[in-house]
């Protein structure tokens, strides 16, 4: 079973700083990492490969440095990495991103066959979760989003059963293969990489493609030009007018707050079983 995983290199948003003057992100303040959800997607692909054979390919769109994120995937156990990198891809929103990735997947599909595509639930920077379903729609594959468990793969009948997380529980879905899954972190734990993988990753060079290496690309659908959305204004999250800081002794402060609370005493009436 050949599995393709789409992976993105992202700035670590846990540490990224916002420049307060320009309201832009100081990307140099944060290291670039493999999108954490994508690490789980690769891990799942490697797990499925162990059970069913075949190979795991990873694909990324990004600048040349994104090769580092691909190396990380090789550490986890990916067999081959592909990077599509071209100025013409720059500035893509999710529609243009899914188009570019689709064109590359189409090529891989033609050359080697693909039975399953995996994506992360979302990327922690753009944080839209829209790319996966976009690719699926373009590939004509059913998208199964928010997957927390792959129950079963029936290679003979070309079927897969997964659990999808929904608001108040989960649903079990059966789909024909090939299809596309986007995965949640709960799906697995990313294991420590075995030493031989690390060795291989250190030296690994992914296959790099530009637009010209892809077939029948409509340039108008790529990058900034192919993006219907644009980012208008950016600003730091709302600093509202701020609290009234109550003054006085501790006792006075407490009394003041209690009096505010008691403006609506009916709220506190016991409603058995509410908690």
């Amino acid at each position: 079973m050949n599995i393709l995983v789409c992976i993105k290199q992202v700035p670590d948003t846990k540490i990224i700083k916002v420049n307060p003057k320009t309201n832009t992100l100081d990307r140099s303040s944060a290291p670039a990492i493999l999108n954490p959800y994508d690490a789980h997607a690769v891990e799942e692909a490697v797990r499925l490969k162990k059970e069913h054979g075949g190979k795991v390919m990873v694909l990324s769109m990004g600048p040349p440095q994104a090769a580092n994120a691909i190396r990380k995937c090789v550490e986890i156990g990916a067999d081959e990495g592909f990077l599509i990198s071209d100025r013409k891809f720059a500035g893509a929103d999710t529609l243009a991103t899914s188009y570019a990735l689709f064109k590359a997947i189409e090529k891989l599909e033609k050359e080697q066959g693909i039975d399953l595509v995996l994506c992360g639930k979302h990327a922690i920077d753009g944080d839209t979760g829209q790319v996966g379903p976009g690719i699926a729609r373009r590939m004509g594959m059913p998208p199964l989003t928010n997957v927390i468990n792959v129950r079963n793969v029936d290679e003979k009948n070309k079927k897969i059963q997964v659990d999808r997380k929904i608001e108040d529980g989960h649903e079990i879905i059966e789909s024909d293969l090939p299809c596309l899954l986007t995965v949640e972190k709960e799906i697995n734990q990313v294991a420590y990489s075995p030493f031989p993988n690390m060795m291989r990753a250190a030296r690994y060079k992914p296959t790099v493609w530009t637009v010209d290496d892809l077939d029948d690309v409509d340039i108008k659908q790529l990058g900034l030009k192919g993006s219907p959305t644009i980012v208008g204004r950016m600003w730091p999250p709302d600093k509202s007018s701020g609290a009234e800081i109550v003054e006085g002794s501790t006792e006075e402060k407490v009394k003041r707050v209690v009096s505010v609370l008691m403006e609506k005493p009916e709220l506190f009436a016991s409603k058995g079983g509410e908690k």
Partner: peptide, 12 residues
């Protein structure tokens, strides 16, 4: 966006 570090207005 960016883990809640910034707000962005998106236009189409």
């Amino acid at each position: 966006a960016f883990g809640g570090n910034i707000m962005a207005t998106i236009l189409c």
